[in-house]
Structure formats: structure tokens, C-alpha cells
């Protein structure tokens, strides 16, 4: 299954890069979302997949009796999901604000406002 997901993650990355290269700033934000999801999955899958073995310690034991999924990448990805949500909401409001001020979502036109 890891191999299948590797291909899927490649597709997600490709989609993200394609969107990041657009001129519309809204599409750029969509690219950002795709990219963070792809990166999260990458970390998760590369650590190895386990079926039906969540990293929980049964009551009364000090360690899981059977092998469990790796908890560390899960913790890292969890942090990443939350942070990318923070970044996304900031970006979205920023785009909204930029639209109000310059009335365009074309990055090439926005650049003209510096001059």
C-alpha cells in the first residue's frame, strides 16, 4: 500500500506545484493547501503503515503488548495539520484584504502596485 500511496502523493505534489505556479492568487492559496496536505501524508506514509494498531497503551499495562503504529510521526503530522490551518486562514484573509485594496487577483498586476 505504501507504494500506491507514494504514487498518489507524487500526484498531490504535482497538483500543488501546478497551482503554485498560477498567476491568480486564489489558486496560489489552493496550491498551498494541496502542498501542506501532501507533505503531511508524505511524513505519515514514509514512517511505515500499520493496520488496526493505534498507538495506545491498554489499561493496566506500561507498554503496548503487540507492535503499534509509530506515534512520533503522528504527533509531528498532528502539529503540522494545525499549523497549516493557521497559515491558511491567515493567507485567506490576506488575499481577501489585498483584493479589497488593489481589486485584482492577478499577481502580475499586484506587482505594479510597488512601483
Amino acid at each position: 500500500m505504501e507504494a500506491v500511496l507514494a504514487v498518489i502523493i507524487g500526484i498531490l505534489f504535482a497538483a500543488a506545484i501546478y497551482m503554485l505556479l498560477r498567476r491568480s492568487i486564489v489558486k496560489l492559496v489552493i496550491g498551498l493547501m494541496l502542498l501542506s496536505n501532501a507533505a503531511n501524508l508524505l511524513v505519515f506514509v514514509t514512517a511505515g503503515l500499520e493496520r488496526a494498531a493505534p498507538p495506545l497503551v491498554p489499561r493496566g499495562l506500561s507498554a503496548p503488548a503487540t507492535p503499534v503504529a509509530d506515534p512520533l510521526p503522528q504527533a509531528l503530522v498532528l502539529t503540522a495539520i494545525v499549523i497549516s490551518f493557521g497559515v491558511l486562514s491567515f493567507a485567506v484573509v490576506l488575499v481577501r484584504r489585498a483584493w479589497e485594496l488593489v481589486r485584482t487577483d492577478d499577481l502580475d498586476h499586484m506587482q505594479d502596485t510597488d512601483r
Binding site: E2, A3, A6, V7, I9, G10, I11, L12, F13, A14, A15, A16, I17, Y18, L21, L42, V45, T46, G48
Partner: peptide, 18 residues
């Protein structure tokens, strides 16, 4: 083209790591 190349390399990298 750029996007597909990047995606392809990511997949290859992941396979190499796995």
C-alpha cells in the same frame, strides 16, 4: 511539465526511502 517532474521525483524519493 515542472509539476509532473517534481511529483515524479517525490514518488521516486519515497520509494527509495521505503
Amino acid at each position: 511539465g515542472v509539476a509532473v517532474l517534481v511529483g515524479g521525483l517525490i514518488t521516486t524519493l519515497m520509494l527509495a526511502v521505503l
